[in-house]
Simulated assay, not measured.
Amino acid sequence: MSWLIALHAIVLREALRFTRQRGRFIAALVRPLVWLIVFAAGFRAALGLSITPPYETYITYDIYIVPGLCGMIVLFNGMQSSLSLVYDREMGSMRLLLTSPLPRWWLLVCRLIASTVISALQVYTFLGIAAVYGITFPPLGYVAVLPALLIAGLMLGALGLALSSTISQLENFAGVMNFVIFPMFFLSSALYPLWKMAESSELLHDICAVNPFTHAVEMIRFALYAQANLPALGWTLLAGVILLALALWGYDPARGLLRRKG
């Protein structure tokens, strides 16, 4: 029961923090909406997309980009969660939390679950706005995408958790944004299909193919059409396990990076 109480308390704390930060919620939606309404409108006539799974007919670019923008929301929220971890560590509340008699790994997983739940809520809000804009998916897809969002959120949240263990000051977070988040987003299938990448550069195609964010996006894309992409699911789960192991190691005071920072 104490483990569940801790999970409830941490999720509730993060939810209350999120609801009180309305600017964060609006910013999380403005970013993908700009891509959907502005950029997608510009590329709609320039980019033709062939019939590839899970699509059964020719689609416009704005339809293709929506799953990638869902992944963008999850990715940036995972990084925002890592930023809050650095802030909590500087303020001392994170260290106080980690002194709890509960296992350290469970407390970190609770933070991870909390950020994932918030990501899913943001994505569903975005999908609702996209539906008003005219981009809809099969009704079952809105249900099937929830497990995909949770798995992708846990993987990307674990990435943010691992990164936060290496960041000692808030000022260093901008560098992480530039050298980790943006390359991960742009070198993926979020904005362009992999076959389109292969037409311009085989090297870019190979980089995108090994990017775990690509597999998270493809898992979400297929789930929105109530289809399973088992290879993408497998690679996302594998990346999540590896990143979570790195995060737990980084927060281990006996062996991880926090010990080096004193």
Rank of each mutant, 00 (worst) to 15 (best):
P231Q: 04
W235R: 04
I242F: 07
Q21S: 14
Y192N: 08
Y64K: 01
S188P: 11
L194G: 13
R22E: 08
Q21D: 15
A152D: 03
W3N: 10
S188R: 01
F173L: 14
V34W: 04
H8P: 02
T52Y: 13
L243Y: 08
A6W: 09
T136V: 14
M184Q: 14
N229A: 07
L194A: 08
G141N: 07
G262Y: 11
I37C: 10
I73S: 02
G175Q: 12
G153L: 04
F126C: 03
W195F: 14
P67C: 11
A223T: 04
F186G: 09
P139H: 10
A198F: 05
G141S: 12
S2K: 15
I181H: 02
R111C: 07
Y251V: 07
L237R: 00
G256R: 01
F126M: 02
T166K: 14
A131G: 13
P54T: 11
I10L: 11
I129L: 14
F25K: 01
S189P: 05
E218D: 15
R260S: 12
G262C: 02
S100T: 12
M219D: 04
G128S: 13
A190Q: 05
L47E: 10
P253L: 14
L102W: 03
L163D: 01
L150F: 13
I10G: 04
M184Y: 03
P101H: 09
D88V: 02
E171L: 12
R104T: 12
R20H: 13
S84T: 12
L258H: 05
E56A: 08
V123H: 04
V176D: 09
L163V: 15
I51N: 10
G157L: 00
V34Y: 09
F137N: 09
P253I: 11
F137V: 11
P139Q: 06
Q80T: 13
L75I: 11
V86E: 05
M197L: 15
L149M: 11
G78I: 08
L204G: 13
V180K: 10
R31A: 12
M94I: 09
L127D: 04
M79V: 12
G48Q: 14
L248Q: 01
Q122I: 09
A226H: 06
Y124A: 05
